[in-house]
Amino acid sequence: MQIDIMEMIRVFAVGGGICVIGQLLLDFTNLNAPRILVLFVAVGGILTALGLYQPLVDFAGSGATVPLPGFGYALVRGVLEETAASGWAGVLTGGIKNTAAGITAAVVFGYLVALIFDPKSKR
């Protein structure tokens, strides 16, 4: 396993930076966390369609793919690749195909966790 310090710094800086944008929205607008998630996925998807997100992914790797705009990126990239390969059907199949593992894991494992654990009182 190769450790590239510069790459690690880029990942941290870009990933943390995207979160700071989210924090500024939380603190200075009346957007709450669920709305920000939706906004970030949409913005990530739109930037990808405009060809502006891929350079960020090339630059920062996980720093750009782990935050929610990266989910929008994965969806749009999936659609575009699949549409290029198999035509109109790709519009409907590409997005979920490219993100299937994450979505399925989130729902199935989430369901499982919900069945096992109980919510706790906050303090």
């Binding site: 979160c19 944008i21 924090q23 929205l25 966390a33 669920p34 920000i36 782990v66 929610l68 966790v113």
Partner: peptide, 23 residues
């Protein structure tokens, strides 16, 4: 704050937390 909400882990949390709550 947003550091926990914006990464994909925040999405995972928003999937499981209501599921837990409404058990």
């Amino acid at each position: 704050g947003a550091g926990a909400a914006v990464p994909i882990t925040g999405f995972a949390n928003s999937v499981v937390s209501p599921a837990l709550e409404y058990k």
